[in-house]
Design a binder for these strands. Sequence first.
DNA 1: TTCAATGTTCAGCTTTTCGGAATAAGGTTC
DNA 2: GAACCTTATTCCGAAAAGCTGAACATTGAA
Lengths: 253, 253
Amino acid sequence: MEDTVESSPALKAFGLLEAIAAMDHAPTLAELTEVANLPKPTLHRWLTMLEGAELLRRLPDGRRYELAARSTALAFAILSNNPGSIRRHQILQGVVRDLGESCNLTLLQGGEVMYLDRVEASLPLRVAFQKGSRVPVHCSASGKLFMALMPRGRRERLLTSLPLDKHTANTITDPAALDAELQQIKRQGYALDDEEFLTGLFCIAVPIFDRDGRDCMAALALQAPVVRLWRENAPDRLPALRTAASALAATLN
Amino acid sequence: MEDTVESSPALKAFGLLEAIAAMDHAPTLAELTEVANLPKPTLHRWLTMLEGAELLRRLPDGRRYELAARSTALAFAILSNNPGSIRRHQILQGVVRDLGESCNLTLLQGGEVMYLDRVEASLPLRVAFQKGSRVPVHCSASGKLFMALMPRGRRERLLTSLPLDKHTANTITDPAALDAELQQIKRQGYALDDEEFLTGLFCIAVPIFDRDGRDCMAALALQAPVVRLWRENAPDRLPALRTAASALAATLN
DNA sequence: TTCAATGTTCAGCTTTTCGGAATAAGGTTC
DNA sequence: GAACCTTATTCCGAAAAGCTGAACATTGAA
């Protein structure tokens, strides 16, 4: 949270949410006291208020606070109804027009890949996903890309909590094999999904970096039937995807 | 935005952001006046405040407001923050996938059992409960488990304050019988609900202990119709449930 | 120019927030 | 189990922020 004084108490709540969202574990009152630089009773009052508003909730131990349903709902509403959302949709439409295949803008939410937006190709033989739906990280191009580009500690924590379910014959279910795959993805800067989630479906995903160019905050993925997109011809789409990805990056800050 | 009065002015800001995020175009002050049901000067003050905090910004015409950079950043932080809730939900999904029946994560809250999270089996013949709903302690597997594992003083206090209502023919309403049941539950380390709350519904619950392995802070319960789950075959599910329970424990502290 | 609609400022009154100090609750050590 | 420490919660008078009717300013259309 900012160490600068908020101009109004009403805004302090946002600073608190930001502080809690930025922590990698559910904080206690005492921990937040240091981060937020607020007196204990003041902070306690705020946390109780936010809990009552269902923006936060306490873990069963009664001491730790984590984000609750209303925060998640607000976040989703913000991202899908952002001024940039129209622009993003247009960029996706441009990719679909140029490359002729369906195209997804994805986020990593918790341990799953979420479709923030999506434009479908008008061709037949397309795959019907939906905005807001989710797929596992270990068998999607975007998911593997996110894992490959995240800090090691976070990746390891995520990997231990994942089931690595087998969805198709190609799904990578061996942790060592997945790790090798992630290293290669990191080297080459893009990821493929070669029928690892749905038989017959091939994907290629490129990262969308934040302003500093370090964090991968989203991904752009092209998906098509293997009869039209496969391991050898997929990289031909990279230039167009990379151009779109950097345009998308500009809409996400 | 909801028409109910926010309990505190400090939370009004969230209601406003939600209202703006829910609109399909950038609203003017006048438009928001109707939606938010606030006097014009009040709303104007809030919008100016949110604009100053970079949560909102005005379109170049100076009249319309849209979400700004800080809102987007907050949304990303909320969604990518991996509060245990997502991980817990994944674990429940895993149990449902493995065992094929609906699964609940429960807490003891205020003398009742509360469903913190829940994943339903995709089979027909499933029972529809809801997240956040509550059931009595004396006729649910989780509730009896909580009572069996809590310190004696607390249990006795709770028992004297409970009505022990009869819900079905099997509900245990005799304090002595309940006490005997609790002792057996404590010995065997899991609890059953054999149609004690709803006729036709069978449950088995295992404890989720805190880090020290002493306090039972939550419970994992599998529930199914008696035609598929009953007293003799229920213990077969224990290994899977125990594994999931210890994974859940890690998310709860 | 006039009019109507929308946006902005003002000011006194009301409500909320602030946070040090006191108290309670939980844990740990001896 | 008593003493001790840490963390959480409650209290309440002082201080700050919020509220909004009314007045004023600006914009755009006729």
